[in-house]
Computed example of a mutant assay.
Amino acid sequence: MRTLLRAPNWVGDVVMSLPALRALRASAPSDRLVVLCRPWVADLYRLLPEVDEVLVEDPAEHAGRAGLERLAAKLREARLDRAVLLPRSFVTAWTAFRAGFPERIGYRGELRSPLLTRAVPMRLSPGEHEVFRHLRLVEAAGARAEGPPDTSFPVEKELQRSARKLLDAAGGTGGPFAAAHVASFAHAAKRWSLARFGETFDALSERHGLSVVLLGSASEAAVNREAAAGARKARVLDLSGKSSLPEVLGVLSLASLFVGNDSGVSHLAGAAGTPTLVTFTSTDPDATRPWDGPRVDGRPARVAVARARPLCAPCRFRVCPIDARCQEELSVGSVLAAAERLLASRHEPSAPRAS
């Protein structure tokens, strides 16, 4: 059997769908597993030993009807037997249909059921983590997860060496450091106050001797500069636009702590096994926090959530239509208290991070 897994588009969703990918692989270890994904997450999938091949769906090359037909032709050439479609969009089902996969499995909705050979009903349970939504879909494809969900990414020693070189080229951390991601792609309502991030960085420096490494894309450089300017005492290195996602993973694996908004980088921090503190404002931590269930590597889960609880949250607005109270009511003190608990957890026994 040759299976195509159409991957989610965004980094956090990629991490939350890893247990589903691993269940597919474990259920048929001799099958060929091919991942179709967006270009910005392709290098993450290339790190996974469970994946035999990575195909890229490029928004520039495969836009519009003609572009989708080119993608369908590319998939036909791969001669695959079935497609498991994690995204719920009409376009993903249409492309699989046009590619002629004998078996096409995905969730119902978006008027796409006629394009699927197996349209799986979507069951939404309050408080359920996204990990389980992905797992239910691959169960419909015959896969069964054995043991706890595994959202970890392998971090090889070579990747850590590359990360150290990147940090040295930026001026060096001078010792232990906290990694941070203070932006939130196209979602201002998810972003905690940059000034309060700066205060948090200063407190981590004073109390624990931690410098701060800011992560992010080139488009997030202005946000990072503003956060760095708010830190009066902490040493801050800004890597925005200077690292690939695998290098970000390497940097995170070396950090003593991660602190940041609900974003793909926070999920990578959890996947790297780093003590991870996420500030939640408009989104729902029950559904989308970095996975904090039992880890297959035996290490304790080290994920904490800091949030205010106004009646209007979670709301999922990209821009707050009222007064951003979910951001304003989240204090530096509550974030630091969660950070203190995570830093104390570093002294618990753990397995080596690098494989």
Rank of each mutant, 00 (worst) to 15 (best):
L4A: 11
P29L: 07
A42K: 03
P49G: 09
P49C: 09
A60M: 06
A60I: 10
E61S: 11
A63C: 13
G64T: 09
A66R: 15
G67S: 11
E69W: 12
L71I: 12
L80S: 05
S89E: 09
W94S: 07
T95V: 15
A96W: 01
A99R: 01
P102M: 05
R104F: 04
I105M: 08
L115P: 03
L115N: 03
P126D: 11
G127F: 11
E130N: 13
F132W: 12
R133Q: 14
H134A: 14
A140P: 01
R144C: 06
P154E: 04
E156T: 14
K157V: 13
L159V: 05
L166T: 04
L166V: 07
A169V: 10
G172M: 12
H181Y: 14
A183R: 00
A183L: 04
A183G: 15
F185L: 11
A188W: 02
R191L: 13
F197M: 04
A203D: 05
A203Y: 08
R207S: 14
R207C: 10
L210M: 10
S211V: 00
L214P: 00
A218F: 06
S219L: 14
E220R: 02
A222N: 10
G241E: 10
S253I: 06
S263G: 03
S266T: 06
A271I: 01
A272E: 02
T276W: 02
P285V: 14
W291I: 14
W291M: 09
D292F: 13
A301P: 15
V303I: 09
V305Y: 04
V305A: 05
R307M: 13
R307Y: 04
R309G: 07
P314W: 02
C315R: 08
R316P: 00
V319T: 15
Q327M: 15
L330I: 02
L336S: 06
R353K: 07
S355Q: 08
